[in-house]
Design a protein around this nucleic acid. Sequence first.
RNA 1: GGAGAGAUGGCUGAGUGGUUGAAGGCAGCGGUCUUGAAAACCGCCGUACGUUUACGCGUACCGAGGGUUCGAAUCCCUCUCUCUCCGCCA
Length: 422
Amino acid sequence: MLDIKFIRENLEVVKLAAQKKHMEVDLDRLVVLDDKRRALMSALEEKRAAQNKASSSIASATDDEKRQEMIAQMQGLKKEIQDIEDELKPVMDEWKTIMLQVPQVPDMTVPDGASDEDNVEVKTWGEKPQFSFDAKDHIEIMIALKMVDFERGVKVHGFRGYYLIGDGARLSWAIWNYANQFFGNKGFDPMLVPAIVRKSNLYGTGHLPNEAEDIYKTQDDDYLIGTAEVSTMGYYADEILEKSQLPIKHLSFSPCYRREAGSHGKDTKGLIRVHEFYKLEQVVLCEASHEESVKFHEWINRNTEEFIESLGIPYRTVLNCGGDLGQGQVKKYDIELWVPLEGTYREISSASYFHDFQTRRFNTRYRDTDGTLRYAHSLNCTAIPTPRILVSLVENFQQEDGSIRIPEVLRPYMMGKEAITA
RNA sequence: GGAGAGAUGGCUGAGUGGUUGAAGGCAGCGGUCUUGAAAACCGCCGUACGUUUACGCGUACCGAGGGUUCGAAUCCCUCUCUCUCCGCCA
């Protein structure tokens, strides 16, 4: 949510923002509605002031006859107020609908482009493995090592179903435990968050109204989260924080649900695109300052890079183009891991900041040193998603004998084992 | 699923039609006292929008929406949420 005052004063900027993000929103209509809204409101306030004034003189009137006369005179004013209210209502309804669609303004450094194909590579790290043998993809490797069971997954869940079994499950636990340690050392407080949430939380993060197709919903009109960011931000809804509490840094764990309704044809095999997965997410709330947001944005992205580096998986970082940004995002980096058998990089992390877009919707404020209330700034970045991380991990570290070399940092969490073998 | 109670400011808690934007208490801020601190005492202390050079003024807000009324925190309706007890269940 942007401030209507900001939109009015920076109309061209916001129009360009929508254009850059390839989003449709009728800002001219919004301004027309806002003009009406303001005019009606001020007319209404004037009438109400008159009404309040008259009411208090009725209250203090002692002469009963005079009192009845005054009450009779108020009838006309009452009707006028009612008329203005009736006129205002539809204006407000439409105004609110459009306001929910207005995108956050992307940063100057965000490149133009329509989709992830236009994202700009800003960094590459690691040596891509050169296999002297007939390397296999993660599906073949993991099935052979009894780490995953797709057949039963589909039997039980249906399309895109999977079970992680044996060392596949162990490896997932190892990654979670290692990540908890790694990010804990950086000052993150762990949180296990609700995966079923009220609708308002998804409006808060900006996933609704625009991404409704991708979100599961219950018969009670609750929603399944696609990321722990939703519940973690909701935790602070309608709260007034002390400045001394900031920055707040959470490492939130949750199952994540994505319908991916429009993507039946893409990545139908393997663990890349699944309906249900697990994720550790970094969520940060900081002071309302662009510099602070930028500082923490770089930091949380770097945290995940360091985590991947510690595992030794080759990756690259891209700066997302305008068309690949969510409605509320100012700027976003994706970290993509090398997938040898596909010969391409695959996204495993997104780091974004929102300024006060989300906190306005959640009404999350803090008391500044001068006593004024400000909307905090919010940011989030994937710490690690499982099982998607396994795709790169097993493909990059596969050995000629069909085993997988376990990265050293994970070995303490895998009972000291150096490799996963048949 | 059944029965009942409730939703008021940062917190607690009064308030059932007319200076109630809302008593009292706590917390916070300023001051007196004190070498300093504590205690005690005095004072200040909601948010948003509009308007004004400014002091200020206006409007709205007591879970949400609608209604009754000249006038609603207070009466009526609908919804949402919370709590307690019973049932079911990990």
